[in-house]
Design a protein around this nucleic acid. Structure first.
Length: 424
RNA sequence: GGAGAGGUGGCAGAGUGGUCGAAUGCGCCGGUCUUGAAAACCGGAGUGCCCUCACGGGUACCGUGGGUUCGAAUCCCACCCUCUCCGCCA
């Protein structure tokens, strides 16, 4: 949710940002402004009527008690008339509230000034880290390595559930477990509090972080109980503090959590679907921060460094991108992506997305803090980033670590957690 | 899943139709007193929305949403959650 004051004061900026993001219909701005104006008129009138209603009630009370029905009669008549008007206006305000809310939810978060404007080709590569491996043989893609070593069973996953729900087997499974442990340990070292979160969330939580209503089709919906499988731990971790007012000394709050993530990936069939590149269920460790508004861009850089440290711990070559406006989602003001080099596929794979949502999610989820004792509550800023998403990390580990004999050598830091240093 | 009890301000806990945003206690903030502190005493203190340049005023909120009534924390309906017992179960 954007700031209603911003919308009132500078609707052009909001429209320009929508165009830069290439999201939504700019007419939502006018719809919101119109609903806002009409709502305020209606509320002002409604409050006046309620005031009159209260006055009448206070006069009628004593009269009724004293049995002076005749004295009360004209007052009762007026009160009944006011009552009808109040009812009418309440309905009107309710409709206008809903209209305003719908329009506001359809307006994306304005981009930060440092975000390059443009489409995907305007994404800015900020840096590359590590050396991409060279081979004196033809490196294999990870799905061939995984099959050779029996690490991932896609066919049985498809049988038991469907495409995109693989089994990890033997060292494949142990590798998953080791990566989760390693990433959580790194986050703990960086000062995050580990949280084990529910992986089913309700509708309010989906709205709070911005998946709902506009990405409804991307989430698995358990209709029997009207709950949603989380597409990322961001949803439960950020909603952890929903509808709360935090004490002055509570911020910053840093949470980390591992969850499986479920994504329907509707509309992306046939794109990047080989192997582990794109799955309906995958594992991810998420990093989430809550902080005061004026600190959030410092926290964004810190969070970015936290995510990069995880990639570096695995020794995987990667690059960092600042996403251009057209590649940003509804909720982000600024996002960095981290992409690891995938030697067997000869391409970069996104393994982390690190974003500042400013107050956009906080407004939707109503997460506030009191800057100082006695001061008015303010919305926090929320940030999050993958730290990291597993499948593509596994792909890169297999592809970059492969040897001429088909075996795979694991980086030391991971081997220490996994309990084995090579596969095959 | 069945039966019962209950959801009130930071916490505890009154309030079962009228002037109740809500007693009281604890906690919290400010003050008086004190060399300082404690105790005692005095005062203050929720959130949203609307009007106002502001001072300030209005209004809503007692789990959530409806309803009855001139008037609802209080009565009615639905839902959610918590607790106790039974059943089931990792």
């Amino acid at each position: 949710m954007i700031d209603l004051d911003l919308l009132r004061d500078d609707p052009d900026r909001v429209r320009a940002s929508m165009e830069a993001k290439r999201i939504g219909d700019p007419s939502a701005v006018d719809a919101a402004l119109d609903a806002d104006r009409r709502r305020r008129e209606a509320v002002t009138e409604l409050d006046g009527l309620r005031q009159r209603q209260g006055e009448l009630g206070r006069q009628i009370g004593p009269l009724m008690k004293a049995g002076q029905r005749d004295e009360a009669a004209p007052l009762l008549k007026e009160s009944n008339a006011v009552k009808a008007q109040v009812k009418e206006l309440e309905d009107a305000v309710r409709d206008l509230d809903a209209a305003l809310r719908d329009a506001m939810l359809a307006i994306p978060n304005p981009i930060h000034a440092s975000v390059p404007v443009g489409g995907e080709d305007a994404n800015r590569v900020e840096m590359e880290w590590g050396d991409t491996p060279t081979f004196d043989f033809e490196p294999l893609p990870h799905w061939e390595l995984a099959e050779r070593h029996g690490l991932v069973d896609f066919e049985r996953g498809a049988k038991v559930t469907g495409a995109g729900f693989p089994f990890y087997v033997g060292k494949g499974a142990r590798l998953q477990r080791a990566l989760v442990t390693l990433f959580l340990d790194l986050a703990t070292e960086a000062g995050y509090t580990e949280v084990q979160a529910p992986i089913l969330v309700n509708e309010d939580s989906g709205i709070g972080t911005g998946q709902l209503p506009d990405k409804e089709g991307q989430m698995y919906h358990v209709t029997g109980d009207d709950l949603y499988l989380v597409p990322t731990a961001e949803v439960p971790l950020t909603n952890y503090l929903r509808d709360e007012i935090l004490a002055p000394d509570a911020l910053p709050i840093k949470l980390t959590g591992y969850t499986p993530c479920f994504r329907r990936e509707a509309g992306s069939y046939g794109k990047d679907v080989r192997g582990l590149n794109r799955l309906h269920q995958f594992d991810k460790v998420e990093l989430v921060r809550f902080c005061p508004a004026e600190e959030s861009y410092d926290h964004l850089e810190e969070l970015l460094a936290d995510a990069e440290r995880a990639v570096q711990a695995l020794g995987l070559p990667y690059r960092r991108l600042t996403l251009a406006s057209g590649d940003l989602g509804v909720t982000q003001a600024k996002t960095y992506d981290l992409e690891v080099w995938s030697a067997g596929q000869g391409r970069w794979l996104e393994v982390s997305s690190v974003s500042n949502f400013e107050a956009y999610q906080a407004r939707r989820a109503n997460v506030r803090y009191r800057p100082a004792e006695g001061e008015k509550p303010q919305f926090v800023h929320t940030l999050n980033g993958s730290g990291l998403a597993l499948p593509r990390i596994v792909a890169a580990l297999l592809e970059n670590g492969q040897q001429a004999d088909g075996s795979v050598v694991l980086p030391d830091r991971l081997a220490a957690v996994a309990g084995f240093d090579r596969i095959g």
